[in-house]
Design a protein around this nucleic acid. Structure first.
Lengths: 140, 140
DNA sequence: AGAACTTTTGCAAATCATTTGCAAAAGTGT
DNA sequence: ACACTTTTGCAAATGATTTGCAAAAGTTCT
């Protein structure tokens, strides 16, 4: 059934106005199932909608992040561009191929470590980020 | 004894030319013992040397990173500025207070996890990055 | 469906961190 | 001190992201 209808409902429930730009961005992210940059999304959507602006993509992505339906991560070691990923499924991390950029989702190994560190430091731990870098089978 | 003499030797050994800018940058990092931004270093050193440029700081930090005597990390969740840290002591990670920015070094819990992931994915794992975010005792 | 109201978008320009080109200055080996 | 190579100061460029503002689109109420 119609995916954009589901997305509409999702946005309405969150009190986010339904615009075609927003639907298209979320559709693309759902379809790709991998972290995308604002530029990736823009490049893909501007062919269908030449009036679309990169700033609109950024504004909406930031909005989604604030509303907790998208997460923003820095994936590459050297480049400083942000990647965005639909928040769905469980909390996970990423393994990134240094050569081809392929991204593999990883389960989180840090529950015990976090509570250990919390006890040792008396910090209240709110979140964490973990990335592994390497070479995928093809690139080795 | 004279620390800048040690630093001179260190640079010479690595085939890096000894300049006063380089010595000052490394001295400051050694003295501060916490990750600093290029802007931090520049702000601190420009009072003694008003001709110093931020680009010089960046160029030297990048050089040190390439020569493996400094590591470059992204510390803050939102801000995109890089932090630089003298490579000394053992491999570690960071716990950062979301409120005051205090940084605590953490031991690395990932040896077993890395080999497990390597087996599962057939990736050759080269490195990893882990950061924890939370509130320090004072900021809770 | 239309009016009134609020939010988002397109567009251009600004911002922030970082890099680069180039001539002058400084470091190095002899 | 000399000839050679690298680094620096300086200005301008770059890349990612954000912002101001008027026009356009979405929402609510009737």
């Amino acid at each position: 059934m119609n995916q954009s209808l589901n997305l509409e409902k999702k946005l309405k429930k969150l009190g986010i106005r339904v615009t075609s730009q927003r639907i298209k961005i979320l559709e693309l992210m759902a379809e790709q199932q991998r972290p995308l940059t604002a530029a990736d999304i823009f490049a893909r959507l501007k062919t269908d909608n030449p009036k679309l602006r990169l700033s609109t993509v950024y504004r909406n992505l930031n909005n989604f992040v604030a509303k907790n339906i998208v997460s923003k991560i820095e994936l590459k070691l050297d480049k400083k561009e942000s990647y965005f990923e639909l928040l769905q499924g469980e909390h996970h991390h990423h393994l990134i191929c240094l050569n081809c950029g392929q991204v593999v989702p990883l389960s989180c190994p840090l529950e015990d470590y976090e509570s250990k560190i919390s006890k040792e430091t008396n910090y209240k731990i709110v979140e964490h980020r973990l990335k592994l870098y390497g070479l995928c089978p093809k690139c080795q």
